[in-house]
C-alpha cells in the first residue's frame, strides 16, 4: 500500500522531472557527444521507470523488458560513438 503510494506520487514524478531535464540537455546540447550522453541518460531513466512500473503492477515480466532495454541502449551508444569517431572532419 505505502509502496504503491510512494511509487506513484513520489518516485514516478521524480523520474519524470529527470527525463525533462535530460531532454533539455538533448535539445540544447551544443555538440553531438553531449546529445549522445543525454540520450544514454534518457535510456537508463526509462529502464528505471519500467522497474518502478514492475513494482507498481506486480508484473515481474516487465523487468525483463528493462534489462533488454539497457542492453540495447548500450549497443546503440557504442554504434554512435563509432560514428562520431569516423565522421570527424578530415
Amino acid at each position: 500500500m505505502i509502496v504503491d503510494f510512494v511509487a506513484f506520487w513520489v518516485v514516478l514524478p521524480m523520474l519524470s522531472l529527470a527525463l525533462v531535464l535530460a531532454f533539455i540537455r538533448l535539445a540544447i546540447g551544443p555538440t553531438l557527444p553531449d546529445r549522445v550522453v543525454a540520450f544514454e541518460l534518457i535510456a537508463i531513466l526509462l529502464a528505471g521507470v519500467i522497474v518502478v512500473y514492475a513494482v507498481l503492477g506486480e508484473h515481474s515480466a516487465l523487468f525483463d523488458v528493462a534489462s533488454v532495454w539497457a542492453i540495447i541502449s548500450f549497443l546503440s551508444v557504442v554504434a554512435i560513438a563509432y560514428y562520431i569517431e569516423k565522421a570527424r572532419k578530415p
Binding site: 509502496v3 510512494v6 511509487a7 513520489v10 518516485v11 521524480m14 523520474l15 522531472l17 529527470a18 527525463l19 531535464l21 535530460a22 541518460l41 537508463i44 531513466l45 528505471g48 518502478v52 513494482v55
Partner: peptide
C-alpha cells in the same frame, strides 16, 4: 525507491 530515484534526478 526514493533513494534510487533521487540519485537519478541528481544525475539529470
Amino acid at each position: 525507491l526514493i533513494l534510487g530515484a533521487s540519485f537519478m534526478l541528481i544525475a539529470a
